[in-house]
Amino acid sequence: MIDVKDLSVAFGQGEARKQVVKSVSLSVAKGETLGIVGESGCGKSTVLRSLAGLDRHWEGEIKLAGTAVAKTRTREQLLLAQMVFQDPYSSIHPRHRIERVLVEPMQSMKRGDGWDKVGPALEQVGLPAAFAERFPHELSGGQRQRVAIARALMLEPEVLLLDEPTSALDVSVQAEVLNLLSDLREQRNLTYVLVSHDLAVIGHMCDRVLVMKDGSFVDELTRDDLKHGRTHSDYARELFAASYL
């Protein structure tokens, strides 16, 4: 589903040029969930934003569903992958009602006005259809993140890119959102790329985990490795020890 070869990202010019992602390669099969774990500044979010098409400083090759994508995406390419952001308080327009938030993707893509899809979309993420009338500030953090997930799914993408989707939420709410993501993955056969600093969340959700440090992948762990606490590099071991697992 996703094929990345020698992806490099650098910001800045001349002396201040900083290589954030150093020639990484990864591939994700359809229906698989890949986790990328690492500390702040390791480049994991940059990888995700390059996959989404938000960062245009990358070099290398990104293939989504078999087609290579350029730095500027076409509409069809944008339809393949949508993203859920970390902070549900800043990822939804504060002056749009929830119904407006949900129809915007449809109308932007010229796929009809989308009003009839608002109710089902809300119910699908476990919110009452009556929430369509509300403004984001009338919703809790967990409810907003559900809306953000519903919005990402409006265009029926095959890939969902998740950037720390629960790190702004309480543990109990995190559990609800993670369950929702698991259910949706099953119902729609979605492919996830989940970026997080929290090994527990990554371990719970992912089939395979890439450990990232200073712009490179230093370890790859399977679900079984996580269960038995097996690691193949010093850094992954440190990370494990520090996570109180």
């Binding site: 989404a52 800043s90 327009h93």
Partner: peptide, 13 residues
């Protein structure tokens, strides 16, 4: 902001 980033992703002109 993230909501403008999200809008770019769903192709808002």
């Amino acid at each position: 902001t993230d909501y403008v980033a999200a809008a770019r992703l769903y192709g808002a002109s």
